[in-house]
């Protein structure tokens, strides 16, 4: 009843008074301002996930926007028992994979991606030489991009988005045990690439 009133008045209470389910209920009823709150909440995470997949700033911005628009178009079918980002993530992932398939490119060299997009936290004393740091960044970026989609995906979610095991499990719809074993294999592959296959 309260929700219906809110929709009629096109009034959105402050974010803190609405939890995600309430906001999504408003979105399902066609309230675009409520959807803007959802976009604002997840846009940065969406961008980072997309960037992790496509390694292209502009494409990541476009693809994550497209995914938000597609998610809104089918929001009426949205199941309120799942989290929005889980639903959104599937759309975004498909768009990113389609983009890569279409462009026939999986990796971009570090020099193309540029320091504007990836930064190294600079208070690191162990790598005194600036060039050594850049070389390390390059190596790691290259190694991550050499991973196949499934292993790269989990590294992106864990290392660059800081998601917990349970969050990753929910997002990928896999058990936590699978998250851990997939992470193990991804890290093992990274280790192998970084050490030049000498394992």
């Amino acid at each position: 009843m309260i929700i219906t009133q809110v929709v009629k008045d096109e009034f959105i209470p402050s974010k803190s008074t609405l939890d995600e389910i309430e906001i999504l209920k408003l979105c399902i009823q066609g309230n675009k301002r409520a959807y803007d709150i959802i976009v604002k909440r997840y846009m940065k995470r969406a961008y980072f996930v997309a960037f992790g997949f496509v390694s292209d700033k502009d494409a990541a911005l476009d693809l994550s926007q497209d995914a938000f628009i597609r998610a809104y178009r089918s929001i009426k079918k949205f199941d309120l028992r799942i989290k929005f980002f889980t639903y959104y993530y599937q759309i975004l992932k498909n768009l990113c994979f389609n983009f890569l398939r279409d462009k026939k490119k999986h990796t971009r060299a570090f020099s193309e991606v540029g320091e504007e997009i990836i930064e190294m936290i600079s208070d690191d004393e162990s790598y005194s030489n600036k060039y050594e740091k850049i070389e390390l960044k390059e190596k790691l970026w290259k190694a991550i991009n050499e991973l196949d989609d499934i292993h790269r995906e989990i590294i992106i979610l864990k290392e660059f988005n800081g998601l917990s095991y349970s969050e990753i499990a929910e997002l990928l719809n896999i058990p936590i045990g699978t998250v851990m074993s997939r992470l193990y294999h991804s890290r093992m592959l990274l280790r192998k690439i970084l050490t030049g296959g000498k394992l």
């Binding site: 961008y47 930064e119 690191d124």
Partner: peptide, 16 residues
């Protein structure tokens, strides 16, 4: 693994 983890921890994706 710890070394790789430390390396990725130091590498951040910069937000526009």
């Amino acid at each position: 693994f710890k070394r790789i983890k430390e390396l990725t921890k130091k590498m951040n994706l910069r937000s526009p």
